[in-house]
Design a protein around this nucleic acid. Sequence first.
DNA 1: TTGCACGCTGGAGTGGGCTCCAGGTCAACA
DNA 2: TGTTGACCTGGAGCCCACTCCAGCGTGCAA
Lengths: 141, 141
Amino acid sequence: MLDAVSVYTPGQAAEETGFSLDTLRYYERIGLLEPVERNAAGQRRFSDEDLGWLGMVRCLRDTGMPIAEMLRFAKLVRKGDDTINDRVTLLEAHDREVEAQIAQLREKQAALRRKIGYYRDVLALSETPSPCERVEEPQPG
Amino acid sequence: MLDAVSVYTPGQAAEETGFSLDTLRYYERIGLLEPVERNAAGQRRFSDEDLGWLGMVRCLRDTGMPIAEMLRFAKLVRKGDDTINDRVTLLEAHDREVEAQIAQLREKQAALRRKIGYYRDVLALSETPSPCERVEEPQPG
DNA sequence: TTGCACGCTGGAGTGGGCTCCAGGTCAACA
DNA sequence: TGTTGACCTGGAGCCCACTCCAGCGTGCAA
């Protein structure tokens, strides 16, 4: 397979990853991103590998992993293939947390919808006043 | 229906709602919670209504609504029944955001699981070395 | 009558995750 | 030759949502 190795300016990297320039620099500063290659003028040139890793970071970040834990994962990756077991353990734990997060969102969303339904009933009754109907429980808010 | 009106100490309210004492005081301070009743000694006594509202707050907070927006909602609630339409609008918008959040989590979770699967394949191959199998794409991390 | 638990206040501090800024370099174009 | 525009650095600042603290009051039980 012919690996077309590309190189990206900071602006392009930001565009591709959705992280801001400042965030990319910040990630490099704290070691979440390994020191990025530079051109003669000292400007960053991101590689495909960098972008791949940033994709992973985005995935973890968007699922709520704190930076401290991403750093732990990054260290494992850098340590080499011996750490794959540990990486799986870490990612599986995270997967379970994501699952829990979704479950909790669904649950609260259901409550939210009940509330909306309650308000709708109130509105329906006030539009068509008929003394026989009644919305059961008064609700907070 | 016989409303057994209860009253709760700050400690009990914290217990019931899962918010810390400091958070309850903070919410009152910023106006997310209306000024709570006091006993002769000036200590807070939370009502069932307070707890009900705090339940709503917990639901909104746990689904990621920022405090500023909860304050907007709180103001509508205080303004009275004329605002029920606005409240529905606000909550429906929030419901859509929750939906989007869940969708995004599911999507990223799928990527996460592909990654875990990839690692598992790598592990399986290194345990049972057989040169015919190959894990397709090298992955970042 | 003292000791402890619980609560009060105003204000300062914290932690996470960026975000902004001044002052500078460099390359390309008009 | 001058002016953009993209990028550099170190360090300060910001926002959110709490969290902690000193110093104080109250009420009950041993």
